[in-house]
C-alpha cells in the first residue's frame, strides 16, 4: 500500500498533491462474456470518491452489466476491481449499495424492509428507521405492505433501504425508467441529497435531461467499451467520439 503510494507520487508529484492517491473504485481490463459474445470488453475505469457519474449508452450496450460487475454481483471473466487501491473484497462490497430498475422488496411491511437492511449492517434502531422513512416521505406508510405501495413509493423505499447501509458508493440502475415525472423528480432530489452528503453516485439512465440534471461526469459506453469518460458539460458540448455525437443527436448507434 505504502509502496504503491510512493510509486504514484514519484510518477506525478503535482497531480498527487491535489488528488487522493487512489480512486474510490477502479476497474482494470474488466471483461464479461456470455454465450460466446464479449459483452463488456476491456473496461478500464477510475471512479472518484465524490460526485455523480452517469452511465449512458444505447440499449444492449452493457450498462446494467457493467454496474453489476462493478458492484461484484457477477464475476468478470478477466480483469480486476480495486477499492481504494486494494483488491475489492466482501468488506468493500459492504460499503456499496444498489437500487435496481425494478425494486425487489421483501413480502413485509415498509418498515420491516428497512429493518432487514439495518440489521444486516448491525444498526437496527427504530429512530434511524423512522428517519429514513421520513427522509423518503414514507413514514406514514411504515406499516403498509411494501408490495402494495405505488411504483414510485416502492422505488423510494428501495432507495431508503440502500441508504440504510450507509454506503460510500451507491449504484442506481435506471431507477426511474418506469416512473411518472413526479416520482422521477422525487428520486432525483433524494439522489442529489445523498450526493451532497458525500455518497458517490453511479447512475444509469437513457434520459438526456436527467443525465444533465444529475451528472458531474458522463461515462459513455457503446457496445461494451468505454468511449468517453468526461465531465458532463464537456461531454454534452463537445463529445469526442463519433458514437457519442450520434447518440446525442438521436442517430442510431451500433
Amino acid at each position: 500500500m505504502l509502496d504503491r503510494a510512493f510509486d504514484s507520487y514519484d510518477a506525478s508529484p503535482v497531480e498527487d498533491a491535489i488528488q487522493p492517491p487512489f480512486p474510490l473504485l477502479a476497474a482494470r481490463g474488466l471483461c464479461f462474456e456470455a454465450g460466446g459474445a464479449r459483452l463488456i470488453d476491456e473496461v478500464d475505469l477510475r471512479l472518484d470518491a465524490f460526485g455523480a457519474t452517469v452511465v449512458m449508452g444505447p440499449n444492449g450496450a452493457g450498462k446494467s452489466l457493467l454496474l453489476r460487475l462493478l458492484h461484484g454481483l457477477i464475476a468478470p471473466c478477466a480483469g480486476e476491481l480495486l477499492w481504494r487501491g486494494k483488491a475489492m473484497g466482501e468488506a468493500a462490497r459492504r460499503r456499496q449499495a444498489m437500487v435496481f430498475q425494478r425494486p425487489v422488496l421483501l413480502r413485509r411491511s415498509a418498515a420491516d424492509n428497512i429493518d432487514f437492511a439495518l440489521k444486516l449492517h448491525r444498526r437496527a434502531d427504530r429512530d434511524r428507521r423512522d428517519m429514513l422513512l421520513q427522509h423518503v416521505g414514507l413514514l406514514e406508510k411504515a406499516r403498509q405492505p411494501a408490495r402494495l405501495l405505488s411504483g414510485g413509493e416502492q422505488q423510494r423505499l428501495a432507495l431508503a433501504r440502500a441508504l440504510a447501509t450507509e454506503p460510500e458508493l451507491l449504484f442506481l440502475d435506471e431507477p426511474t425508467a418506469s416512473l411518472d415525472p413526479a416520482s422521477t423528480q422525487m428520486i432525483e432530489t433524494l439522489v442529489l441529497a445523498a450526493k451532497r452528503n458525500g455518497v458517490k453516485i453511479v447512475f444509469v439512465t437513457h434520459d438526456l435531461g436527467q443525465a444533465k440534471r444529475l451528472a458531474d461526469k458522463i461515462l459513455f459506453l457503446p457496445g461494451g467499451r468505454v468511449a468517453e469518460h468526461a465531465p458532463a458539460a464537456r461531454f454534452f458540448d463537445r463529445p469526442t467520439s463519433e458514437a457519442a455525437r450520434g447518440y446525442l443527436e438521436g442517430r442510431i448507434v451500433l
Binding site: 453489476r68 458492484h71 461484484g72 454481483l73 466482501e90 462490497r93 459492504r94 456499496q96 449499495a97 444498489m98 435496481f100 425487489v104 421483501l106 413480502r107 413485509r108 432487514f116 437492511a117 444486516l120 447501509t165
Partner: peptide, 24 residues
C-alpha cells in the same frame, strides 16, 4: 430467483437469506 441479486447486493449472509426465504 427473485431475491438473490438484492440479497447479494446487501451482503446477506447465507443463513439470514435462507431464513428470510422461509419467512417470506
Amino acid at each position: 430467483h427473485e431475491y438473490a441479486e438484492q440479497f447479494r447486493s446487501l451482503s446477506t449472509p447465507r443463513w439470514t437469506a435462507v431464513n428470510a426465504l422461509l419467512w417470506d
